[in-house]
Design a protein around this nucleic acid. Structure first.
Lengths: 409, 409
DNA sequence: AGTATTTACGAACGCTCGCTATCTATACTG
DNA sequence: CAGTATAGATAGCGAGCGTTCGTAAATACT
């Protein structure tokens, strides 16, 4: 248990590997229950081995036994079926935004046990910690899971996150948030491994999990702020910690990263606030337009896209400009990463096809392999879903005694 | 041996794991020989187990035994020491360029056994195949390795490579090269697993291996053409197959990807040919300048950097312009990837600090985490070295019966 | 030079584990 | 009510690892 090369050893290690193999097979087909015969086939192990492993896992509470329930209608003695006992190790995901806190509790199989949101008009850092405590407790109550049972938790925060210290940099809207050790706070509530990551990263993880399979995913979160997460073959790419910060890409007219402004050039150019501003200006310049009718005084980002969808040329021009700026900023990364798909989520994604098609047209001119361009299927819950996902991955990586023999050198 | 989940099984699988563990430990400390006691410590296995594995590996030819040689000067009975027998599975790397073919042969421990280069003034596709055959045979002779012994081979070609078909797209300078199945040709000579990859990718792999450790590396090959390879924690990132094609990034003045031109906008703007052209124009405009003196009629890329190093303001302006264009094109990718280091290789890298500093100054304005900017330590041989490296990785992945339990879903 | 010490190799024993083969249990079919 | 097909439980066998002991080979000390 000391060295790091490989877990090789005696026969007990072998049994641990085989038990893990069985557990992994059950996990892969979750939430469908599996017959023992199927486990034999999938693991390649002998039936007595599988049976023994199943017994052990039932004993330890990782699996639960199903009755020969329902219409299984086949010849012979009905097989007992087992599935993951989700309650064995529930996980918690936490999404902390400047105006909203969301907590989700999920069981091992990925089923949501609870989801609690709370919105507010902007908290101080201290108030926010209190809200987090409340919402976590509320979610635990709703899920009927005692705090001690939580096996792992992941928190999402905007800004650039330092995994090790638990601190966050470049956060707007919440004064004093950078000084808070969020990991420590959550660990005080839960007493389990707690991880912290960027919200865009976690949203990307959720989207990648929903899409399934391998390949490279570039998941853009586009709202007032602009960020992206990169998932390569199911693994998050973090770089040195600040990967995916597309908000700071320079534009044609604005190429300065201002240390005093937590927003970057691209955010200033095409963030939702900027889109609304462009729309207001266009409405002022064209008072007769549909855009001006729709928006009035309080013209919103949604109005711009709505008018564009109604083929208002003024609004379409704004969308074209936004799409062009965005595509030109993103194209180099698409060329370098060559992703399988680019998925756009966040508030601006509600614009739908109007924006997506405009971006696709631009990107087609600027890239070689044109990735699939999609809207995120997960709406607001992407971040919290990704947080639970990462917590689940953590639990599995910890529980499955993988003899990680990965080596690069 | 059928299913893909895990290699779990009986005790014979366990022994294979342990033998692999021993072999892996030897590999990690190559080329230093190891005593059995050290292997016991590193693997965590019992001495008889290690001894048996070593016997087996000696028998199979993977290890070689060293005499109790030289000044080991310690108490007690001298230990026998074993090391990798490189000749057990030598590998071959092949770098095919339009004007040069390079073949390297390496043993298992990564020691170069042979390196043969041949240059020519531009071959047809058919001639090139003949040259490849000749150079491979020459290298095999020099390395004193029969063709049958080669355990894996990797070929590098410029252009965008399709791993599966062995075809290459977007290759300039060699007419008909896209129609050639290079993999098939090499397999006809060697009868072993043959892989094909982009030259920039393989150079990146070599540079990453030389730097060692983990992290994200963006390795730019900058010559007449412009490409990059991305290595993340020792693994190459390919995307859907065309990752790293930075030559096609749009510039401020040129944002069209022309299907008839195999070069991209950035290559047209800052490729070595473009730099020379800028230099010639600047020399014409400023006939009194040091640049005009140095270059004369046949002003070369090297002349531009030489004059700039001598503080000629005209040349420095050219370098500044090149650096600015390059940095602006690369900055979005640096933001998105957030690499540990950016390494520049290829012909233009010979410019040295003059160019590097100018790029660093520009990048500092455009990125958040500023990666280390370095020149490639491996000069011309980076691609061949990377090809051998990948072949070695292939051999190890094949021979070490790793029960890859990596799972993402 | 002889003895003690240190280090490493080698062989025998016992333990655990998984695989093969056989037997029993259960439910549907005719 | 017997026959059959499927699944679960049990016994014996073989393989591999770890522990323990004995032996070999070199150095240090007297």
């Amino acid at each position: 248990m000391s060295k790091g090369t490989i877990g090789g050893g005696g026969t007990t290690m072998l049994r641990r590997i085989n038990v893990a193999s069985v557990l992994d097979a059950v996990r892969r087909s979750a939430p469908a229950p599996l017959r023992v015969a199927e486990l034999v086939e999938r693991t390649g192990l002998a039936r007595p081995t599988v049976a023994q492993a199943v017994d052990e896992l039932l004993e330890a509470g990782w699996l639960q036994q199903h009755g020969p329930d329902s219409a299984d209608r086949s010849l012979g003695r009905p097989a007992i079926r087992v599935s993951l006992r989700g309650r064995a190790a529930p996980v918690l995901g936490l999404d902390v935004g400047p105006h909203r806190v969301t907590v989700g509790v999920s069981d091992l199989a990925g089923r949501k046990l609870a989801l609690v949101r709370r919105s507010g008009p902007g908290w101080t850092a201290q108030e926010l910690l209190g809200v987090i405590t409340d919402v976590i407790n509320e979610a635990l109550t709703e899920a009927e899971v005692p705090a001690e049972d939580i096996a792992a938790a992941v928190a999402a925060s905007p800004g650039i996150v330092d995994e090790h210290t638990g601190r966050v940099q470049l956060v707007p809207s919440v004064p004093g948030w950078s000084a808070v050790d969020l990991i420590k706070h959550v660990r005080g509530l839960l007493d389990c491994p707690v991880m912290l990551d960027n919200d865009a990263n976690l949203a990307a993880l959720a989207i990648a999990a929903a899409r399934g399979g391998t390949g490279t995913l570039l998941a853009v979160q586009w709202g007032e702020r602009l960020g992206a997460g990169i998932v390569i073959d199911g693994r998050l790419h973090r770089g040195t910690g600040a990967a995916g910060e597309i908000g700071f890409i320079a534009t044609d007219t604005d190429d300065v990263i201002n240390p005093d402004d937590s927003r970057g050039p691209l955010e200033r150019a095409v963030g939702s606030e900027a889109i609304a501003a462009l729309g207001r200006q266009a409405a002022l310049d064209n008072p007769q337009s549909r855009l001006a009718e729709l928006g009035g005084e309080q013209l919103d980002t949604a109005d711009v896209f709505a008018a564009a969808a109604e083929r208002d040329p003024v609004a379409q021009a704004v969308v074209q400009q936004v799409a062009r700026t965005f595509a030109r900023a993103l194209a180099p990364s698409v060329l370098v990463l060559d992703p399988t798909a680019v998925v756009i989520g966040g508030g601006v994604a509600r614009a739908g096809a109007v924006l997506l098609d405009a971006i696709a047209d631009q990107l087609r001119l600027l890239t070689l392999n044109h990735p699939r361009l999609e809207l995120s299927a997960l709406a607001e819950d992407a971040v919290v879903t990704g947080a639970m996902r990462m917590a689940l991955d953590e639990v599995w990586q910890r529980k499955l005694p993988t003899p990680a023999m990965t080596s690069t050198t």
